[in-house]
């Protein structure tokens, strides 16, 4: 039977991935901005923020409720850095990512067709979101591997 903790963790990763996909969408649409896709950029920017907040709240709940068990395993296993470096960094970098995604709809609220500076801000912000998001997904994989290696028979 699938445990609630596992569903929460997978949901967290899924919303994180949806956030990255929506961010790539915003990036490409902004590069090709026109009156035709302006509304879509604004909607997708809000989707980026929405997906991120869902990923954050679900992941945060999992982290404060269930992570202690995984942490104990990681620290006894061959990859203790998966907690000491990767999880510690991830849990704090994600706070910046949350603020970046919250900021994105504000940057995208202007007239991106006429205003090149506003366009550049959106591209930089969403670029940072994509890179940090990929870093978060990769970090999650390393943490998962840290647990897996700890429970494998030696």
């Amino acid at each position: 039977m699938i445990k609630f903790a596992d569903v929460a963790l997978m949901t967290h990763a899924t919303f994180g991935m949806l956030c990255i996909i929506a961010s790539v969408w915003v990036f490409v649409d902004t590069l090709n901005v026109s009156q035709g896709n302006l509304v879509r950029i604004k909607l997708m920017s809000r989707a980026v923020a929405g997906f991120m907040w869902l990923a954050f709240l679900i992941g945060g709940y999992w982290y404060v409720t269930y992570y202690y068990a995984d942490k104990a395993l990681i620290l006894k296993g061959p990859w203790p850095f998966a907690h000491h470096l990767v999880m510690e960094t991830k849990e704090h970098l994600v706070l910046m990512l949350l603020l970046l995604t919250t900021f994105l709809p504000i940057t995208a609220s202007g007239n991106l067709v006429a205003n090149k500076s506003a366009r550049n801000v959106v591209l930089w912000v969403v670029g940072l979101i994509i890179l940090t998001g990929i870093l978060m997904e990769g970090s999650g994989a390393i943490i998962g591997m840290g647990v897996k290696l700890a429970v494998l028979p030696k």
Partner: peptide, 16 residues
């Protein structure tokens, strides 16, 4: 002006 950023883009960007 044409290429100026909006007030809240700047204020929340600097806040970020």
């Amino acid at each position: 002006k044409h290429n100026e950023l909006e007030k809240y883009t700047i204020s929340f960007g600097l806040s970020l």
